[in-house]
């Protein structure tokens, strides 16, 4: 469990980081942020980057604020920053609901939001939330800056359209309308484990009818995705057991669940159903 040898870089600003990464990317040079996914993989020697570019010294990446109705999350922002009240409104609420479900205290105080997006674990809560909220990923390299909509970002389990020389410097998220309701539910064997499946929802209620429903399911497939079938089942319906059951059923039917040695597709589908309904119920509380 000792990592293979590597060279360590600690740039002081984004440009320098981009330059170093451009040089080392082809030797599997990588960004290290919180190290909470990368370091374990290196300890197992599953990852053997020859160079590590640590972005922890770059103060400019600390940004966490709402500007022009957009939430900006810099690449140095840790999971633990998203405590209740840190961000205003329903956007802040859903971040705070989700955050305690990620890992444990020590991981949360090191791991970063953008690192989770870069790592793209199928069961990453932040990836599911970014999907729900139509996040935009801001990628920088010596070639310039690119804005990747989340819908064009993931392309497989732990795989994204980010180029090896690109750094995520920030995620930008349009904030939810003030009266939006949000809900989250995930199921894992133990508290803090990666979830077997999860659902995050957001919707408004006007005149007793659901408006602008969003349902994001994570953990079930290679990467999280909005489940339009479930959203359609909700749109215009009266919030309550019937609509929620229909949406849950639609979500369960829509996913094509991953299988592994202990969890078959049928079970994951059952969890998607339960998680979707429970997230919707939570949103009404």
């Amino acid at each position: 469990m000792k990592p293979a040898p590597f060279t360590y870089h600690r740039p002081l600003n984004i440009d320098e980081a981009a330059r170093i990464l451009a040089d080392v990317a082809e030797h599997d040079g990588r960004i290290i942020a919180g190290g909470q996914s990368l370091a374990p993989m290196m300890a197992f020697r599953v990852a053997r980057p020859q160079h590590l570019v640590d972005i922890d010294e770059i103060v400019a990446l600390d940004v966490l604020c709402i500007e022009d109705a957009t939430l900006r999350i810099g690449a140095r922002v840790r999971h633990s920053r998203f405590v209740p009240g840190a961000i205003a409104g329903p956007t802040g609420e859903i971040f705070a609901k989700v955050m305690p479900n990620i890992a444990n205290y020590s991981v949360r105080s090191r791991g970063t939001f953008c690192g989770s997006l870069a790592h793209a674990d199928p069961a990453s809560e932040w990836c599911a939330l970014a999907t729900l909220l139509d996040a935009e990923i801001i990628a920088r390299s010596v070639r310039g800056e690119r804005r990747i909509p989340v819908s064009a970002y993931f392309d497989g389990a732990m795989s994204t359209t980010l180029a090896p020389d690109e750094i995520i410097i920030e995620a930008r998220i349009p904030v939810l309308r003030e009266e939006t309701r949000t809900g989250f539910y995930e199921f894992s064997r133990r508290k803090g484990d990666f979830a077997i499946a999860m659902a995050i929802v957001a919707f408004g209620v006007e005149n007793g009818r659901i408006t602008s429903p969003r349902v994001s399911v994570g953990g079930a497939e290679a990467y999280p995705r909005r489940i339009r079938e479930a959203e359609r089942a909700l749109d215009g319906a009266a919030p309550g057991a019937d609509a929620f059951a229909a949406a849950a059923e639609a979500a369960a039917a829509a996913v094509d669940p991953m299988e592994d040695a202990v969890t078959d597709a049928a079970y994951r589908r059952d969890i998607v159903r339960a998680a979707t309904r429970r997230a919707l119920e939570q949103a009404m509380q």
């Binding site: 064997r189 133990r190 508290k191 803090g192 484990d193 990666f194 040695a261 202990v262």
Partner: peptide, 27 residues
Amino acid sequence: YEEFLYDERGEPLSVTFADYLMPTANE
């Protein structure tokens, strides 16, 4: 919670604490 699992070729599947689940104070 806890179980050492193997695949059909004898590859052990429970070689980290993410796969070999010990109950914690939460459980």
